[in-house]
Simulated assay, not measured.
Amino acid sequence: MLNLFDRMNGHSRFSAFLLLLALACLPSMSHASNADDMAKAAQLDDERRMKALLAAGVDPNLVAQKQRGETALMMALREDSKKVFNLLLNARGIDLNLRARNGDTALMIASYKGNVAAVKALLDKEAEPNNTGWTALHYAAAIGNDEIVQMLLDASAYIDAGSPNQTTPIMMAARAGKIYTVKLLLDSGADVTLKNDAGMTAIDLAKKFDHDDIAEGLTHRLKQAGKL
């Protein structure tokens, strides 16, 4: 005996095929819709919408911003959406150490933005300060936020972390002319003699970008230590 599908004529079979194809696409369409909704909630700091999405079972780690590969938590930090950030920070199953397409983590974005409260909250939740490539300490040093630098050091951030081109946090601070950050890192044990892939030290970078006071101070400290 022929089953129902076998008894269908050609047109009916083609229509059934299209229906099955459409049904197969529903999960991906739903996934895209959830991502768009999470992105909007993060951008607008819409706590109510984000709560509804999470209550409906949407993954808090879903990539909400495709171009940058960022989660809603990362977007909330970038947009300074405090209510959504706090909600996601405490969401069941949240992964604080996911990386965006460029390698940034939530902690790195918070550090780059100079968001002291968010950095503290992430570290209290045991977000990892160390990873390969650029780190939160690089970013905090580059903007000269000494409070965040100290918080990261207290959380065991590697002080001489090397970026992909072996730039260290103290090099970033010296390049940007952040003299107090340079001193903080130096006093905390940063190695000023390290060189990046271009063969430049923190002193070289300070000189290149006309931060002579930093170059002179670092040179003096190296001479005192008998390293020059």
Rank of each mutant, 00 (worst) to 15 (best):
L73N: 10
D37P: 00
E47V: 14
N61S: 08
E79W: 06
M75G: 14
K51I: 08
F85E: 02
M75Q: 13
M29E: 13
S30W: 09
A52I: 10
M38C: 01
K66Q: 13
G69Y: 01
A41E: 07
K82D: 09
E47T: 10
L62G: 04
M75H: 01
K82R: 15
L53D: 09
D59W: 01
S81Q: 03
P27F: 06
A56M: 07
A76G: 05
H31T: 15
K40L: 10
Q43P: 00
A32M: 08
E47S: 05
A64Y: 05
Q67A: 08
A39D: 07
A52V: 11
A42C: 06
M74L: 06
D80M: 04
N61V: 09
N86S: 10
E70P: 00
M74A: 06
A42M: 08
K51R: 14
K40E: 11
A64L: 13
S28Q: 15
V63G: 03
S30M: 12
L54N: 13
A52P: 01
A41L: 03
A72L: 04
K51F: 01
D45P: 02
D59V: 07
V63W: 01
F85S: 06
M74T: 04
A39N: 08
M29R: 09
R78D: 07
T71H: 01
A35T: 12
V84L: 02
S28T: 15
V58S: 00
L77Q: 03
R48F: 08
E79Q: 11
D45M: 06
N34S: 15
Q67N: 04
F85P: 01
L44D: 11
A64W: 03
F85I: 09
S30D: 14
P27N: 12
A41C: 04
E47M: 11
A41I: 05
H31M: 11
R49F: 03
D46I: 02
D45V: 09
V63M: 08
M29H: 13
L73I: 12
S81V: 09
Q67S: 09
L53Q: 14
G69V: 06
N61W: 03
E79Y: 12
S33F: 04
L44W: 10
P27S: 11
L44P: 00
V58G: 00
A39F: 08
M75I: 08
E70T: 04
L54I: 15
V63H: 00
M38E: 01
S33W: 09
P60R: 06
P60H: 05
A64E: 09
D36F: 03
D46A: 02
A72D: 07
M38I: 07
Q65H: 12
M29T: 14
V84G: 01
E79R: 09
Q67W: 02
K40R: 12
D36K: 11
L53G: 05
